[in-house]
Design a binder for these strands. Structure first.
Length: 543
DNA sequence: ATTGAGAGCGCG
DNA sequence: AAAGCGCGCTCTCAAT
C-alpha cells in the first residue's frame, strides 16, 4: 500500500493506493494535523510516497513520527532518467529538478511554492518505466534502497552526532594556541602568530603572506627556493629552514578555517552536530554533504565526538569494501576467498592476497587493488597490476571492460542498475583521423582514457554505495525498538550512539546487517563483508 | 558588492 | 612517496 502525499494549497492531500496503484481513498488535511494522522496510518506500514523525503520527513521527525518505508519520487526519477534498464519516455519536467535543501523548521510550508505535481501519476509512470525495462527486479530494488537511504539521511540529520564544544575547543587550543581576544592586536591564534614570525624570519621577508598562494610563491622564489606552487607535496621535498614552520602553519590554517571556532559556533547546537546529507548527490550514487562538511570530518577533530554519559559510540567500518564488492560483482572466487579465513569468516582481504601467494606484501595488495579500481597507471600500483590480473582474472576483466566501454563512449551500470552519465566532452566530430594534428589525437586519446578511468571506478564505487545503503537500512530496521540510534555515516562507516549496556548487542547488529546487505545485493555469492567494530567513548579512539 | 575559477586540502 | 576515482569547503584573486 502506498500513501501519496502532496501539497494542496495550504493543506495536504493524502492519496491511498492499493498494490496495483489504484487510488482507493483521498483525504485532505491541515498540515498541522499531518504528524498525528501519519502516526495513525503508519500502523498499516504504508510506503509513504512524496516528491522528496528531504522536504516531508524532517517535520514528521520533529513531531516525533518515524516511518518505516518510503518512495522518494525525485530521487527515483533521477535514477530512472539515466538507468539503461529503464523505459522512461516522459519529457523532462519539474520532476527532474532536484529537491531543495530541507529546513526542518519550515519545510512543509516551503513546499507549496511552484507546482502541485501529480505525485500518484508520477509513481505509476515510474513503476511502468521499471516494469517495461529488462531488469525490473534490480531496478525496483535500487529505488527502494535509495528511498531507505533518504529516510536514514533525514534521521541522521535529526539525531545529530554528539559533539563536545569543550573538547573541540581544547583540541583547537592545543593545536593552534589561544584564539585572539576581541581587543588583541594579533589576528591569528597564538601558535599561528608565532609560526608566522618564524617563517617570515626564515625567508628574510617580514611581509611574507602564507595565506596567499600567489604571494607565497613569489616570496619563496625571492628567497632562492624554486617552486611552482605551494602544494604540500612540492614543499615537502625541499630542504630549507622555512619549510617546517610553513607546513605547520598551513596545516593550522586549514584546521582553523575548515573546522575552527567559527565552524563550532555555526554547526554545533545543544551538543550535537547535525550533518546535512544529500542522497544521490554524487554521480556514482554516493551521498554528498552540504554545509558543515560531514563527509570530510578531519581526523584531528574527531576527539570532539563524545558519547553522552553512560552511552557509547559503536563505530563500524567496512574493511576493503570496494575490493569485496568487486569480487562479488565479478564472481571472482579466488578474490572472494582472499577475504575470508579457512572457516569462511570475514578476514583481512589484503592479508588473504598475501597468504594465497598472489602478492608479496599487504601494501602491494592494497595499492594493486587501488590501481585496479581507480585505473592506476604509474608507481607501485602499476607494477603490481600484472600479478593482480593473473591472480584475479575475473575481477580485473570486469573493471577493464568497464574502462573500455567508457573509452568507446558507452555508459556503464552499477550492480543494481544505476547508469553512468553520458560522456560530456565526447568524441565530438567524426573527423577523419588523418585530419587531426598529432597533438589533437593525443589529447583525445588521453580524454578517452580519463573517461575510461571514470567508468571503471563508477561501477565499483556505485555498487559499494548501494551496499552501504542496504547495510544502513538493515541496521535501521534492527535498531527500530532500541534506544540506540544511528548518528553518523561516512561512505563505508557507520556510527551508532548506544547505551553502554546495549553496545555489544549493537556491534552484533552492525555485523549481522553487513552480512544481510551482502545477501540482499549478491544473493549467494560467497563474499564476506568484514567490519572492524570499536566500542568507544570518543570517535577519535575508534582506530 | 557579487560571482566564478583555481588552488589547496580534508574525507572515502 | 604519490598516483589512479569520487566529493565539499575555504581561501584568494580577478572579472563583473
Amino acid at each position: 500500500m502506498h500513501i501519496v502525499l502532496s501539497a494542496a494549497g495550504a493543506r495536504v492531500r493524502a492519496e491511498t493506493l492499493d498494490d496495483a496503484l489504484r487510488t482507493v481513498e483521498t483525504v485532505e488535511l491541515d498540515r498541522a494535523a499531518l504528524p498525528d494522522w501519519a502516526w495513525e496510518r503508519e500502523r498499516d506500514r504504508p510506503r509513504w510516497t512524496w516528491d522528496a523525503t528531504s522536504a516531508w520527513y524532517p517535520p514528521l521527525l520533529a513531531a516525533g513520527v518515524r516511518v518505516e518505508r518510503a518512495h522518494d519520487l525525485r530521487l527515483a526519477r533521477a535514477i530512472l532518467r539515466h538507468a539503461p534498464a529503464a523505459r522512461l519516455d516522459a519529457p523532462a519536467d519539474d520532476w527532474d529538478r532536484p529537491a531543495h535543501a530541507a529546513d526542518p523548521d519550515d519545510a512543509l510550508f516551503a513546499l507549496d511554492a511552484p507546482v502541485p505535481l501529480d505525485a500518484a501519476e508520477e509513481l505509476r509512470r515510474q513503476r511502468a518505466a521499471v516494469e517495461a525495462g529488462d531488469d525490473a527486479a534490480r531496478l525496483g530494488f535500487l529505488l527502494t534502497v535509495e528511498s531507505v537511504g533518504s529516510l536514514v539521511a533525514a534521521e541522521l540529520q535529526h539525531a545529530g552526532i554528539p559533539w563536545s564544544r569543550e573538547r573541540h575547543d581544547a583540541i583547537l587550543r592545543e593545536r593552534l594556541g589561544d584564539p585572539p581576544g576581541p581587543f588583541d592586536a594579533a589576528t591569528r591564534p597564538a601558535r599561528m602568530e608565532q609560526l608566522l614570525a618564524e617563517l617570515r624570519a626564515a625567508l628574510g621577508d617580514p611581509e611574507a603572506n602564507p595565506d596567499s598562494p600567489v604571494e607565497l610563491v613569489k616570496s619563496l622564489q625571492r628567497a632562492g627556493i624554486r617552486v611552482s606552487s605551494t602544494r604540500k607535496w612540492e614543499l615537502e621535498r625541499i630542504e630549507h629552514p622555512v619549510i617546517a614552520p610553513l607546513l605547520a602553519y598551513k596545516r593550522m590554517a586549514r584546521l582553523l578555517s575548515a573546522n575552527g571556532w567559527h565552524w563550532l559556533d555555526e554547526w554545533v547546537r545543544d551538543g550535537r552536530f547535525h550533518p546535512v546529507y544529500v542522497v544521490g548527490g554524487v554521480v556514482t550514487g554516493r551521498w554528498a554533504a552540504s554545509g558543515g562538511g560531514a563527509l570530510q570530518l578531519p581526523r584531528e577533530v574527531r576527539g570532539a565526538v563524545v558519547a553522552d554519559p553512560g552511552w557509547r559510540l559503536v563505530v563500524a567500518d567496512a574493511a576493503q569494501l570496494e575490493p569485496r564488492v568487486l569480487a562479488a560483482m565479478s564472481g571472482d572466487a579466488a578474490m572472494a576467498r582472499a577475504g575470508q579465513d579457512a572457516d569462511g569468516r570475514p578476514h583481512d582481504m589484503y592479508q588473504g592476497m598475501v597468504a594465497s601467494g598472489a602478492v608479496e606484501t599487504r601494501s602491494q595488495a592494497k595499492y594493486g587493488m587501488l590501481g585496479a579500481i581507480y585505473g592506476g597507471t604509474t608507481g607501485e600500483s602499476a607494477r603490481v597490476l600484472p600479478r593482480i590480473r593473473r591472480a584475479f582474472p575475473r575481477a580485473m576483466a570486469l573493471v577493464e571492460e568497464a574502462a573500455r566501454a567508457g573509452e568507446r563512449g558507452e555508459s556503464v551500470r552499477t550492480w543494481l542498475g544505476r547508469g553512468s552519465p553520458a560522456r560530456t566532452a565526447g568524441p565530438s566530430s567524426p573527423d577523419a583521423a588523418e585530419s587531426l594534428t598529432e597533438a589533437e589525437q593525443r589529447r583525445r586519446q588521453s580524454d578517452a582514457r580519463a573517461w575510461g578511468r571514470f567508468t571503471r571506478n563508477f561501477v565499483v564505487q556505485g555498487t559499494a554505495a548501494e551496499w552501504a545503503m542496504c547495510w544502513m537500512g538493515a541496521v535501521r530496521r534492527r535498531l527500530r525498538d532500541h534506544r540506540a540510534e544511528l548518528v553518523f555515516f561516512l561512505h563505508d562507516e557507520l556510527v551508532v550512539h548506544a547505551p553502554a549496556e546495549e553496545a555489544e548487542e549493537v556491534a552484533a547488529v552492525l555485523r549481522e546487517s553487513a552480512a544481510e546487505a551482502g545477501r540482499l545485493m549478491f544473493g549467494a555469492a560467497p563474499v564476506q563483508f568484514a567490519l572492524s567494530v570499536a566500542i568507544v567513548e570518543s570517535y577519535a579512539d575508534a582506530k
